[in-house]
């Protein structure tokens, strides 16, 4: 658990972070969202003491971070940045093995861990491990960046606009990966972004920041339904709020499940349980259908989702 109590950071005359209180529960993904200069990165960098705070308290599992040796503190906090910050003169394997190396793990265990992470992030231990960062695509490099942050098995993950420099398709792919990995590992994560869609997608709770203050701190759904101010409303955008709301739920949550999986009719399009309701609605509009079958990975029809169910999401 990370607790920020009245944390302030001044750069000379300007106040970058203005007395914020924020509690991040163990295992949750807290996304700090806001426009540039709102203090979200500064907040993140104060947690691992890359920046000293001007006043207030930051506690990790009840202990003030200022009482912990900064290196020990950071070794237990994975750190991912937008420009990856991979060491250009080290191979992918050595980059990922950095923290295990600093923690003086035996070579065997380190190697094992590196391979494990390459696989987890969808990279190939055979071919990718020996490559250098400049030989990787942007998406691959950021996968390595995430793998490096996870290598020491830290309790906390700090991510500073990790997918900000990637193209839309790669970004979405990495967001999916991140959701999958988070389901598996349950790291307490602080994630900074200026992209509200990314925030809605990844967050357990979102902290909307503006001018060094937290405007609203709540679940994505609550923020969508009851934005605390016009600023938050503008951030969300009024045009597609309904669709954004649909995007928060999955087909699996609202579908009518068949008692027994059955064989689907051969010519119909099917949805997956993991698809969002937004995707489901889009498919129905496209297919001009009032309902669509839900297929399992094996291709069996496990249930059905109806259009009126989708439209009832907002009570």
């Amino acid at each position: 658990m990370i607790e920020l109590k009245g944390v302030t950071r001044r750069f000379g005359e300007t106040v970058a972070v203005d007395g914020i209180d924020l509690t991040i529960e163990t295992g949750e993904v807290c996304v700090l969202v806001g426009s540039s200069g709102c203090g979200k990165s500064t907040t993140l960098r104060m947690i691992n003491r890359l920046l000293p705070r001007s006043s207030g308290d930051i506690l990790v599992d009840g202990e003030d971070v200022n009482d912990i040796d900064p290196q020990a503190l950071r070794l237990n906090m994975g750190y991912v940045i937008q420009s990856t910050g991979l060491f250009p003169h080290w191979t992918v394997a050595r980059n990922i093995g950095l923290v295990p190396d600093l923690l003086k793990w035996p070579a065997r265990r380190r190697e094992q861990r590196v391979n494990e992470l390459l696989t987890l992030l969808g990279l190939d231990p055979q071919t990718d491990a020996a490559r250098f960062p400049h030989q990787l695509s942007g998406g691959q490099a950021q996968r390595v960046g995430v793998a490096r942050a996870l290598a020491g098995d830290p309790n906390i993950l700090l991510m500073d606009e990790p997918f900000g420099a990637l193209d839309a398709i790669t970004r979405e792919l990495l967001q999916q990966e991140m959701l999958r990995i988070q389901k598996q590992l349950n790291k307490t994560t602080v994630f900074v972004t200026h992209d509200i869609d990314e925030a809605l997608r990844l967050a357990t709770r979102i902290a909307v920041m503006d001018q060094g203050r937290i405007i609203q701190h709540d679940t994505p759904e609550a923020i969508l339904r009851q934005p605390a101010s016009t600023f938050v409303e503008n951030l969300l955008g009024s045009g597609d709020r309904g669709l954004k709301l649909l995007a928060l739920r999955t087909v699996g949550e609202v579908m009518e499940r068949h008692p027994e999986p059955r064989r689907p009719a051969s010519d119909t399009t099917g949805l997956n349980e993991a698809d969002s309701l937004r995707v489901a609605l889009s498919a129905m509009v496209w297919e001009n259908a009032t309902q669509l079958p839900v297929l399992s990975k094996a291709g069996c029809e496990v249930g059905i989702v109806k259009r009126e169910q989708l439209l009832q999401v907002r009570p």
């Binding site: 950071r74 070794l75 750190y79 940045i81 420009s83 910050g85 060491f87 923290v99």
Partner: peptide
């Protein structure tokens, strides 16, 4: 030396000497 590389190094827990 790119600022981001040094930032990442520090953030990962390397000492100034390292």
């Amino acid at each position: 030396v790119p600022e981001a590389v040094v930032d990442a190094a520090r953030g990962m827990g390397m000492s100034e000497r390292q």
